[in-house]
Design a protein around this nucleic acid. Sequence first.
DNA 1: CAGTCTTCTGAAAGCGCTTTCAAATAGCGA
DNA 2: TCGCTATTTGAAAGCGCTTTCAGAAGACTG
Lengths: 349, 349
Amino acid sequence: MPTDPDHTFKAGKTSGATLDDVAQEAGVSPATVSRCLNNPGIVRPQLKAKVDAAIEKLDYVPHGAARSLASRRSRLIGAIFPSLDSTLFGGTLEALQCEIASAGYTLVVASSSYEPQQECNHLRNMLASGIDALMLVGAAREASVYRLIGQRHVPYVLTWVAGPDGTHPCIGFDNRAAAAAVTRHLLDMGHRRFAMISGGTATNDRAAARLAGVRAALEEHGLTLDPARTMERPFGVEEGRAALRQLMAREPRPTAVVCGADPFAYGALLECQSLGLKVPDEVSVTGFDDMWLSASLPPGLTTVRTPRKQMGALAGRYLLSILAGKETAPPSPLDFELIVRGSTGPPSR
Amino acid sequence: MPTDPDHTFKAGKTSGATLDDVAQEAGVSPATVSRCLNNPGIVRPQLKAKVDAAIEKLDYVPHGAARSLASRRSRLIGAIFPSLDSTLFGGTLEALQCEIASAGYTLVVASSSYEPQQECNHLRNMLASGIDALMLVGAAREASVYRLIGQRHVPYVLTWVAGPDGTHPCIGFDNRAAAAAVTRHLLDMGHRRFAMISGGTATNDRAAARLAGVRAALEEHGLTLDPARTMERPFGVEEGRAALRQLMAREPRPTAVVCGADPFAYGALLECQSLGLKVPDEVSVTGFDDMWLSASLPPGLTTVRTPRKQMGALAGRYLLSILAGKETAPPSPLDFELIVRGSTGPPSR
DNA sequence: CAGTCTTCTGAAAGCGCTTTCAAATAGCGA
DNA sequence: TCGCTATTTGAAAGCGCTTTCAGAAGACTG
């Protein structure tokens, strides 16, 4: 009931008081009002009080665009995720937003749908919007994209990966090492016949690194991953289900199925249940990311816990620190954690 | 390798070419360049070609803040969700972003963590950033918030609810009716002893409406929801598990457990499995939202499919249409769909 | 070919704020 | 009390773009 009865939009209608109005109301110069807003410390308390009163009275809200134009800082930070429709990046997104909001920054977000071209388009849009800093997921992208960023002098950070070299500032963990760790866990239990359900490696360097990690760990034992037992699929429970069914249809069956993401593993677990395969007795299954059902889905999914929220928070803090002009050390890789649950055990034969 | 070798940030460094530079390069006036950008139709093709070439050559990117200031439109659309760390709103968010991006708008996003105060703060920030339009979730909030929006003449739309009256433009479905529909499905099968696991109703009008819907359907049969069998919990699988255990600990056991959200139902289903309770023979379970595991988790969850992506897309389209100055009819409620799966059946006793 | 009507283009005035620079005030010792 | 420095304040010049308004260039017509 407190709103405009009709929802028609009157474009161009003047919006609120300006800084000049506030200055007049308070009987000071616009410059002083500006200082009250941006650097309250340097204005005499008595004056500041008058200005505050005027702001309050006129219900003044600063005009962002005008501020940006004059100060050359937009207070906008951009983030491009491969997908927004997943809990995976949700945690990172939420933590990032929370972190930067506390410093007065606003988050601009977009989803690339795992398509490099879309990422590039969104990036251009964001640069045009004048973002002060940028968060991206993964490291693999065309050189031209990095060139674009570098050209505009926009500080940026890559997440979900650990910098392979020092080329880019990264806030993430070593996907390859993490995948190797789960694999070794299985190897240590005696598994020798492996299969993998992996995300698409073409435009997803995290998925590629995980696949590489599995291969590397196997090689340490002189084993290789049979290409026929390496299924590359779009992320999803049903995809995991179907992949597991295929894997199990072929003799000799693998005793361990390593999944590049938890949803695959959920599907695998559920399909095992359907097929009457005992986990972990007949087959061990591992996931990746420790998403919200991993602890609950029987028999409990052995997986890698990845620092989703932490990456968002730290990425935010890192960018803010650079924007504040502080000397900021390039961040070092974060830890992952192997979570062993009921879905893995020694092979029976 | 094509990037600045050191990641130090040089603030104040001049960024790229300006519109004036482009004008000079193309040998036309700045006004013409501006027109090429904003209204290419009205400039002679021959000139436009020259301008395009100049833009290309100088790698010109328009300065968003300057545009906003001069045109009084920021090309920014804001969205505040109760949470970003969930697939629930992820779909809506992604669809919204996709929709508005295609019209050249950029999405600004924030999470209120289900706290009204946070929502209000983020709203103020966004208004200061100059957003042209706004998307919110749910209708229940302080009158002052709506007043704030109305004052700035920012077009807005509420999602995940259907306007109870015509007070606000809403793009959503009738939560109450949807909950009533699942409940009637159970009633029709002969269930008479009900329990409910509900989200917090204090700051979540969707949860409140769902609870009300269940109550209303029961009342049609002269039944009431026992307060001792109405558990209000924060969303989550483990919460659902615990709630179900409590519900089943008390005789007489309910034959139907209605969950206000799918994660609760997942937990309930898993706990039934743990307890050795046969679903649906000993207890029927229903969810809400048809999230990604509902079809896969045995025995398949009977739930309500809610138009998550559609809401985002339509909300975007609605706002864009208003921003384009078109006469836009206030949207009408969307459909939900009852999805019957294996988790519901007639009560055994 | 002149006259009239369109269609395009350019000059210039801001949009609302920040920030330099110089002027004013306050603070302080002598 | 006066002079000098340290601190605040105000005037004014933009930030880079859009947009009005008027003028130039074409397109037609008679």
